[in-house]
């Protein structure tokens, strides 16, 4: 009798747990719009060095990039502390690249955000859609749960 009760209890418990888990579950791909939604990289393998203040609105210079794979240097407008419209894009190969000049177009804010994205879609084509950021191929690298990006003030 006791065994039966235990068996029933286990079943009910499992059922409840499953119901909880099943009902609470959301498809995996929908989980990345918060927190880390790009590619996780070790700090030693992904680095971005860029001067925080630069002159001019038509280009900026990234002093050094270390990428674990082929990547993109992407420049966005900074709108309310978040990335806005993309204003610059340069492809870099895996490894270290230095003194990279990124042409800018349509800069309308004092600050821009420089980020490093992976090139995981069609090689040489920037496959990234802000509307579907979490499911785009060319998402940014994350180091220590933070996006590999810097804010640059353009004077």
């Amino acid at each position: 009798m006791r065994r039966r009760i235990i068996a029933v209890a286990i079943t009910v418990l499992a059922f409840a747990l499953l119901a909880l888990g099943g009902c609470a579950a959301a498809p995996a791909a929908e989980s990345g719009d918060m927190g880390v939604w790009g590619y996780v990289v070790a700090a030693k393998n992904a680095q971005l060095e860029v001067a925080p203040q630069q002159q001019g609105h038509t280009s900026l210079v990234v002093e050094r990039v270390l990428a674990p794979e082929d990547a993109w240097i992407v420049v966005h407008l900074e709108v309310d502390g978040k990335p806005g419209m993309r204003v610059g894009l340069v492809h870099v190969t895996k490894g270290e690249s230095t003194i990279i000049s990124v042409p800018l177009e349509g800069v309308t804010t004092p600050n821009v955000i420089v980020a490093v994205h992976a090139d995981r879609g069609t090689p040489g084509t920037f496959d990234f859609d802000m509307e579907k950021a979490t499911s785009s191929f060319d998402r940014p690298f994350f180091v220590d749960e933070k996006e590999l990006a810097k804010v640059v003030a353009l004077n």
């Binding site: 880390v36 990289v41 070790a42």
Partner: peptide, 30 residues
């Protein structure tokens, strides 16, 4: 357990971080 949202996010991230630190390369938590 991985169906619980906090674990669904945290565990793959931790594993991806561990892989990035030990194996190298870039790891997509998804």
């Amino acid at each position: 357990a991985l169906m619980i949202p906090s674990l669904m996010m945290g565990v793959p991230l931790a594993v991806a971080t561990w892989l990035a630190n030990t194996v190298g390369g870039a790891w997509d938590p998804n």
